[in-house]
C-alpha cells in the first residue's frame, strides 16, 4: 500500500518535472536569439522532458513487464534528442552561423 503510494507520487513527480522542462524548452525555442541557444532549449524538451514523462508513465499504475517498452522509448529519446541537437548546431557552425554574443546588460 505504502509502496504503491510512493510509486504513484514518484510517477506524478516525474511527469510534472517533464512537463515543466517541456514548457521551459518550448518558451526557450521561441524566445532565444540564435540557432545554438534554440537547439539547446529544444534538446532539453526531448531528453529531460519527454524522457521523464515516459518514465513517469511507466511507474504509473504499478510496474509491469509492458512498461519495459516505455523505458526503451525513454532510452531512445535520451540518445536521439541530443544527437539531433548536436547535428543541428554542427551544421549551423559549418554553414557559418556565428553564435549571438550580445551582452544582455549593455546596449544592443
Amino acid at each position: 500500500m505504502i509502496a504503491g503510494a510512493v510509486l504513484e507520487i514518484a510517477a506524478v513527480a516525474l511527469v510534472v518535472l517533464g512537463v515543466a522542462f517541456l514548457l521551459a524548452g518550448t518558451i526557450g525555442l521561441v524566445r532565444f536569439p540564435d540557432v545554438y541557444a534554440r537547439a539547446h532549449a529544444a534538446s532539453k524538451c526531448d531528453s529531460v522532458g519527454a524522457g521523464s514523462v515516459l518514465l513517469g508513465v511507466a511507474l504509473h499504475d504499478g510496474v509491469a513487464f509492458g512498461d519495459l517498452k516505455l523505458v526503451l522509448l525513454a532510452l531512445l529519446v535520451v540518445v536521439s534528442g541530443p544527437t539531433t541537437a548536436h547535428a543541428l548546431a554542427r551544421a549551423a557552425l559549418r554553414s557559418g552561423r556565428r553564435p549571438s554574443t550580445r551582452d544582455p546588460a549593455g546596449p544592443a
Binding site: 531512445l76 540518445v79 536521439s80 544527437t83 548536436h86 547535428a87 554542427r90 559549418r94
Partner: peptide, 15 residues
C-alpha cells in the same frame, strides 16, 4: 568535404 560527426556516426550505427 565535411566529415560526418563522430557523434552522429556512432548513434546511427548504434540504433
Amino acid at each position: 568535404a565535411v566529415p560526418v560527426s563522430p557523434v552522429v556516426f556512432f548513434v546511427v550505427r548504434l540504433l
